[in-house]
Simulated assay, not measured.
Amino acid sequence: MRIVLADDSVLLREGLQLLLTEAGHEVVASVGDGPSFVTEVLEHRPDLAIVDVRMPPSHTDEGLRAAVEVRTGWPEARVMVLSQYVEVSYADDLLASGPVDQGGTGYLLKDRVSDVDEFLAAVQTVADGGTVLDPLVVRQLMGRRHDPLAALTPREREVLALMAEGRSNTAIAEELTVTLGAIEKHTQRIFAKLGLLPDDDAAHRRVLAVVRFLRG
Rank of each mutant, 00 (worst) to 15 (best):
A121I: 00
A121K: 00
A122G: 09
Q124I: 00
Q124N: 14
Q124P: 01
Q124H: 14
T125D: 11
V126W: 06
V126A: 07
V126L: 08
A127H: 08
A127I: 02
A127D: 06
D128Q: 09
D128W: 06
D128C: 02
G129I: 00
G130H: 02
G130C: 03
G130R: 05
T131Q: 06
T131K: 00
V132A: 12
V132G: 06
D134I: 02
D134Q: 10
P135R: 01
P135I: 01
L136S: 15
L136N: 13
V138F: 03
R139N: 11
R139V: 12
Q140G: 13
M142W: 09
M142T: 05
M142N: 13
M142L: 14
R144C: 09
R144Q: 15
R144N: 12
R145E: 14
H146T: 15
H146A: 11
H146D: 15
H146I: 09
H146M: 11
D147Q: 14
D147M: 12
P148Q: 06
L149C: 08
L149Y: 13
A150W: 02
A150P: 04
A150H: 12
L152S: 09
T153H: 09
P154T: 09
P154K: 01
R155P: 07
E158T: 09
V159M: 00
L160G: 05
L160K: 00
L160R: 00
A161I: 03
A161D: 01
L162C: 05
M163L: 15
M163D: 04
M163C: 09
M163T: 08
E165Y: 03
E165T: 11
G166K: 03
R167E: 07
R167M: 11
R167A: 08
R167Y: 11
R167Q: 13
S168N: 07
N169W: 06
N169F: 10
T170F: 15
T170P: 05
A171L: 03
I172P: 03
A173I: 00
E174T: 05
E174R: 11
E174A: 13
E175K: 05
T177W: 13
V178A: 00
V178P: 07
V178E: 02
V178N: 03
T179P: 03
L180I: 08
G181A: 14
G181F: 09
A182D: 12
I183M: 06
I183W: 00
I183H: 00
I183K: 03
E184Q: 14
E184F: 00
K185T: 11
K185R: 14
H186G: 06
H186K: 07
H186N: 13
H186F: 03
Q188S: 14
Q188P: 03
F191V: 03
K193V: 04
K193E: 10
L194H: 07
G195F: 09
G195M: 06
G195L: 04
